[in-house]
Simulated assay, not measured.
Amino acid sequence: MTKKPAHKGKRKGGRPTRSVASKRALAEIDLSKVDPVSVLRQIAADASAPASARVQAARALIADDRRSSEAPPEADTSLDAVSRGALRILNGGKK
């Protein structure tokens, strides 16, 4: 009886990993033409979206409104980690 050699190296074809699929999807979108505030408004208003997504979108919108009218983002400690992360992503990764 002979042993089959262990295959190491590249993955077989088929379904791509999540990171590869995300990169492909984002490559087709011009991020400079996307308005993050309007996207958040759409999510918050979409009754078919999960409630948690709508709540987080609403929180991000409220926080963004406060931030634009008040102090710098580092001074706002009322946000939870998820809201701060969402706002950081919406600002293009900038703090």
Score class of each variant (00 low, 15 high):
27 A>L: 05
50 P>L: 14
23 K>C: 02
14 G>T: 10
93 G>A: 15
18 R>F: 09
45 A>C: 01
34 V>N: 12
8 K>P: 10
12 K>G: 11
1 M>C: 01
39 V>C: 10
26 L>M: 08
45 A>W: 04
84 R>S: 04
79 L>M: 06
36 P>N: 08
47 A>C: 09
58 A>C: 06
29 I>R: 06
46 D>Y: 13
20 V>D: 04
82 V>W: 04
52 S>F: 14
3 K>C: 05
36 P>C: 09
56 Q>T: 03
84 R>L: 05
87 L>K: 00
7 H>P: 06
78 S>Q: 12
82 V>M: 04
8 K>A: 14
47 A>W: 15
18 R>T: 10
27 A>H: 03
55 V>K: 13
37 V>L: 05
83 S>V: 06
31 L>H: 07
63 A>R: 00
56 Q>F: 01
18 R>I: 10
81 A>L: 06
33 K>V: 14
35 D>V: 05
13 G>Y: 08
6 A>P: 07
36 P>D: 04
61 L>W: 02
71 A>H: 03
42 Q>V: 10
81 A>G: 02
16 P>Y: 08
52 S>M: 13
7 H>M: 14
85 G>R: 11
12 K>Y: 09
6 A>F: 13
21 A>M: 07
41 R>W: 07
73 P>L: 06
89 I>E: 04
78 S>K: 10
55 V>Y: 14
8 K>H: 15
55 V>C: 13
40 L>R: 03
5 P>I: 10
66 R>V: 00
13 G>T: 10
61 L>G: 02
63 A>Q: 01
60 A>G: 07
3 K>R: 11
33 K>F: 09
57 A>C: 08
80 D>V: 07
77 T>L: 12
13 G>R: 10
78 S>R: 11
13 G>S: 10
72 P>A: 12
80 D>N: 09
90 L>N: 02
86 A>R: 01
81 A>I: 12
22 S>F: 10
92 G>N: 07
34 V>M: 12
90 L>Q: 02
12 K>A: 11
68 S>I: 01
11 R>W: 06
22 S>V: 15
49 A>S: 10
80 D>A: 04
32 S>D: 12
76 D>W: 01
4 K>I: 09
47 A>L: 11
35 D>R: 07
76 D>M: 04
52 S>V: 14
87 L>S: 00
22 S>D: 13
71 A>G: 01
44 A>R: 04
32 S>K: 06
31 L>W: 11
27 A>Q: 07
1 M>L: 03
81 A>N: 06
93 G>S: 13
27 A>S: 08
61 L>I: 09
49 A>T: 12
21 A>P: 01
66 R>E: 00
30 D>H: 03
79 L>H: 01
46 D>C: 11
82 V>E: 09
